[in-house]
């Protein structure tokens, strides 16, 4: 069962299909995704003129294809890349978000992988928050002796954060899950996250050998403390959101009266969404300061 779960979770858990999310959840996330993607696209376009669109497309296609290549991890299991962090390391956060959005869009349209109404949720989880969470450690420690750790941490963090968000959204939407199952899911996320970290590190190293200029520069930082604090903070925040959205009575109320008459679900969904908004805003703010620093 655990392996079956893993095969569906590892990367795909984060692809929520249509029909799973309750209306307020998908509607809110779609609404949030639209201006965010517009903003990110404009940002990316400023950094990359139109003629570089092919490079972004190529990176997207590469990550898309890389997701299909299995990495043997022993004991008969294998994992695959999700790629949000890899894109952030190679293209910078804004362009990575655009490319990830493009990947999710094509997957939803052409491969029936992830839903169209749930696209907003998937974009927020992976293309926006996932990319930023992946980029943060690289930004803080990508140059210097903690480089390898920050690449690993960035890739892992992007998977944990995206997975926790997806799970929270499902819970808020009223998909029931016992605590034991939640524990299993978290464990699975952790395994996928470590895998993502190791695979990303391996791919980054082999890309660096072939095309050394491909990776983004990050400014030198002396102390790794900030790096660890940032990683821990994002980790805690995402797990916190997950547990906040799991309050059992909320689910009770959600499944029993899903009609517009009960306002219990609205309050609960509101709490969960506020949590999401918080982490999203946090990442956005970090991203903005980061890019402002870069342009100076």
């Amino acid at each position: 069962m655990a392996r079956f779960l893993k095969s569906c979770y590892g990367g795909k858990a984060v692809h929520i299909p249509d029909g799973f999310l309750s209306t307020p959840v998908w509607a809110a996330l779609d609404t949030a995704a639209v201006p965010a993607v517009a903003w990110v696209a404009r940002r990316a376009q400023r950094g990359f003129d139109d003629r570089q669109a092919p490079l972004l497309g190529l990176m997207g296609a590469f990550v898309f294809a890389a997701q299909l290549i299995n990495f043997p991890v022993g004991a008969g299991t294998s994992g695959h890349l999700v790629g949000a962090a890899l894109l952030a390391f190679t293209l910078g956060p804004a362009a990575a978000s655009v490319v990830m959005t493009a990947i999710l869009g094509i997957q939803a349209l052409v491969f029936q992988d992830g839903g169209l109404l749930a696209l907003g949720a998937n974009i927020v989880n992976m293309a926006l928050v996932g990319v930023l969470a992946g980029y943060l450690p690289y930004r803080l420690g990508g140059a210097g002796e903690w480089r390898r750790f920050s690449i690993f941490a960035g890739a892992s963090l992007s998977v944990v954060v995206a997975g926790c968000l997806a799970l929270s959204e499902l819970l808020i939407s009223g998909v029931r899950m016992q605590t034991s199952l939640l524990g299993i899911s978290l464990a699975v996320f952790l395994v996928s996250a470590i895998l993502e970290g190791v695979i990303t590190l391996a791919v980054v190293r082999s890309l660096e050998r072939i095309q050394p200029t491909l990776l983004q520069d990050s400014p030198p930082h002396k102390s790794p403390a900030l790096l660890f604090i940032a990683v821990a903070a994002v980790l805690l925040a995402s797990v916190g959101v997950l547990f906040a959205s799991q309050a059992p009575d909320a689910i009770e109320q959600l499944t029993e009266h899903a009609g517009p008459r009960s306002f219990g679900w609205l309050r609960q969904a509101g709490t969960g969404l506020a949590g999401l908004a918080l982490i999203y805003g946090l990442c956005l703010a970090i991203g903005r300061t980061v890019s402002r620093n870069r342009s100076v």
């Binding site: 404009r42 296609a61 990947i103």
Partner: peptide, 29 residues
């Protein structure tokens, strides 16, 4: 389809990236 999305207001840059992504998917495979 992507052209249709462009006319419904999706950023063009995103759609051009989608076009290239789709095209290069064949190249990579």
């Amino acid at each position: 389809l992507l052209n249709g999305f462009e006319m419904t207001g999706v950023p063009r840059f995103l759609l051009v990236v989608c076009q290239f992504l789709y095209r290069y998917l064949f190249v990579i495979s």
